[in-house]
């Protein structure tokens, strides 16, 4: 039982990192991306590729994954960030579908739909994280670092510039802010850290395939941010905890017929989102409008 909770807690940590990074661009920079799972995937594939081909060293996998994901995102952000709002959402949607096709077709690297099997456990300085509890500690420490780092950035002058751009791009521009640069940097940060979650995910599950990096995953991450509370420090973490544990908790409800568990889970998940948006649109940890 402990091992199972450890397993869930590790997945919660990974999802929380994803939600925190997505919240960084959604909540503070006002960039709504439906392609977050792509960078999660890039991180995971880079880590798996390195682990299977060369080394299981986390210290090598992490920077490589962060760099690749960050560079791809910047290359895309430069043209796409010129458009705003709804258009960017649609652009990210298109990118997500394209990337999923590439993930399933570039078989020499991604293993296609069959995925990559038997990824060795990560190690730091020769110490392999084979014990699930140790891995949880690793994921937990990473999550804390990410939360602290993100909170620090948000409070810094860079964070204030970001919020200024979110609230009024033209005003920020008038104040002499380099809007394009600030936006691009924030996308780079968000996707690079997102790739860290991908690395942990690949090393932890020791199996990855395209199904974890599709539009469904992207919408799930987005839901975590919104359910928890967009633009708050703890909201994304709470959202990640709830949405990761909900399916697991539902499997313990004894009165559900076995063949309907999956559907009932999904229905509760959908219904919860609808009700939350009607009654508490700022999310569970949300603060009143205007304070952010």
């Amino acid at each position: 039982m402990i091992a199972y909770l450890v397993n869930l807690a590790t997945l919660v940590c990974i999802n929380a990192i994803l939600a925190v990074t997505l919240n960084f661009i959604m909540g503070y920079a006002g960039i709504f991306s439906l392609a977050h799972a792509v960078f999660f995937g890039v991180g995971a594939y880079v880590a798996a590729f390195i682990a299977l081909q060369w080394t299981d060293s986390l210290l090598l996998q992490l920077p490589a994954a962060m760099l690749v994901a960050g560079l791809i995102s910047v290359a895309l952000a430069l043209p796409a960030l010129r458009v705003r709002g709804d258009y960017f959402v649609a652009a990210s949607l298109g990118f997500q579908v394209l990337a999923a096709t590439v993930f399933s077709e570039w078989k020499s690297v991604t293993g296609g739909i069959g995925g990559l099997v038997g990824i060795p456990p990560a190690s730091i300085g020769g110490h392999a994280f084979t014990d699930p509890v140790e891995f949880l500690a690793l994921a937990g420490v990473t999550l804390v670092l990410v939360v602290v780092l993100t909170a620090t950035i948000v409070r810094s002058s860079f964070g204030r510039s970001l919020k200024a751009i979110r609230d009024s791009e033209s005003a920020a521009l008038a104040f002499g802010k380099n809007v394009a640069l600030i936006k691009t940097l924030s996308v780079f940060y968000s996707t690079a850290i997102c790739a860290v979650a991908g690395v942990l995910y690949a090393d932890y599950l020791s199996f990855i395939n395209v199904e974890s990096f599709t539009i469904d995953a992207s919408t799930l991450f987005m839901a975590m941010v919104i359910v928890g509370g967009i633009g708050t420090v703890w909201g994304p973490v709470v959202g990640a905890v709830l949405l990761t544990l909900l399916p697991a908790a539902l499997t313990y409800l004894p009165f559900l017929p076995r063949t309907e568990i999956g559907s009932v889970q999904q229905m509760i998940y959908g219904l919860a989102m609808v009700l939350l948006m009607i009654f508490k649109p700022d999310g569970l940890m949300g603060i009143k409008r205007g304070e952010a």
Binding site: G262, Y269, G270, P281
Partner: peptide, 28 residues
């Protein structure tokens, strides 16, 4: 939703939730 918030993404998430419920209801 529009009367309290109405931001693009709040509506999107609510609508997405409806789509999830309908899909599974049809499946059941």
């Amino acid at each position: 939703i529009q009367s309290t918030d109405g931001s693009f993404f709040t509506i999107f998430v609510g609508s997405f939730g409806v789509a999830v419920v309908v899909q599974n209801l049809i499946g059941t």
